[in-house]
Every structure is written in structure tokens, then in C-alpha cells.
Amino acid sequence: MYELFKNLAKWLTSGSQWAGTDGIAHRLAEHLQYSLLATLIAAVIGLPLGLLIGHTGKGAFLAINLASFGRALPTVGLVVLVFLASGLSMWPVYIALVALAVPSIVTNTYAGMTAVDPDVKDAARGQGMRGHQVLFQVELPLALPLIMTGLRLALIQVVSTATVAAYVSFGGLGRFVFDGLAQRDLVQVLGGAVLVAVVAIVLDLGLSALQRFLFRHRTAALR
């Protein structure tokens, strides 16, 4: 056990391991690229959808069921299925990652919108605000904390799933996990797993720090 950790530390810190196209630095960049781009695409799809459902109150049934569908969908199956359907392109990775991220974004955006006090919306309308003004100047700012929670959740899921993408012969940090499993090289497998976990935790902490920074005035006002 001790020997294993010593080798793991050596693997993670050796300079040669970080260099080159199959080095840690390159795989890390790939992993971040898949994760961030997929979350961004998912946000572009999910945010307007969630805002629309929340603002109009129509399609709430869809928003709620989308959440449990997203939770139940097996990631591995989805990645393999899209891969078999589309062959060796970047499509399977992005389709699978986006499909996973959209439900959490839509449902949390919707939840944030429904949590806005109806009296506040009435007051905004009473002041003569139009529908889009109520949406963008009242509902959206008030719903932002929950929307951010949805984005954070989506990003964690995507970082985690981007690992699985390596199974269908793509890059990213999952490469180390699957190559290691194939070569019975436990140190490499563990190294990959540790790196993925660190990326997920650091990104989540980063987003939560960003969230706190963006809403620093609000918490001050509440106090």
C-alpha cells in the first residue's frame, strides 16, 4: 500500500509524465476543453428553455420529468450508443455530455424561476414593466443563485462523464484510467482518477467562489 502511494506520487510529479501529447498537461487541456465546451453548449440550450418554462409557467411537467429522466439515463450506454451511431468523430462525446448537462440546467433554472415571490412579479407588472422586462430585470436576477447551482451540478457531471469518453477511444484524463486498466498498471489508473477528482473539485470550488463574488452585494444587503 505504502509502495503504491510512493509510486503514485512519483507518477504525478515526474516531469516526463507531464510532457508530450499523451502527457498529463495535454490530457488535462483536452479534458477541460470537452467539459467546458459541452457545459457551455448545454447552457445555451438549457438556460433559455428553463427561463421560458419558468416565465410562462407552461411545460412545467416537461421540466420536472426531464430531471428524473436525466438522472436515470446511463452515461456509459449513451456514450457507446452515440459512438456506434456516428463513428469516430467528436460528436459522441459532445452529444452525450450535452444531453447529460441539459436536464440539470433546465430543472434548476425552472426551480429558481418558480421560487421568485409572485408578489414581487405583481409589483413589477404594477409598475408598468413589460413581460421581457419582468423576466430580465426581476425574475432572472432573483433566480440566479439556483441557476448557478444548476450550472455547477451540470459541470461536475460533465467533468465526471468526460472520463467515460476515453473509453470510446478519445483523449482527456480518462485515457490514463482506461489505458492503465488495459495494461494492468494500477499506478496510472489511480493517477488518472486522482486527477479527474481534483479537476472536478477545483472547478466546483472555483464556480462557488465566483458565485459568492457575484452575489457579495446581495448577502451584504440581506444582513
Binding site: L4, I156, V177, L181, L186, A193, A197, A200
Partner: peptide
């Protein structure tokens, strides 16, 4: 919450030893 952040494949793999 922190445990939840660790990707599932990573948890399985980290338990292997």
C-alpha cells in the same frame, strides 16, 4: 458534497487497491 464531486469512475478505481 465533496464526495459527490468525485467522478464515479474515479471512486470505483480508487477503491481497487
Amino acid at each position: 458534497n465533496v464526495l459527490f464531486t468525485i467522478p464515479s469512475i474515479a471512486i470505483f478505481v480508487l477503491l481497487l487497491p
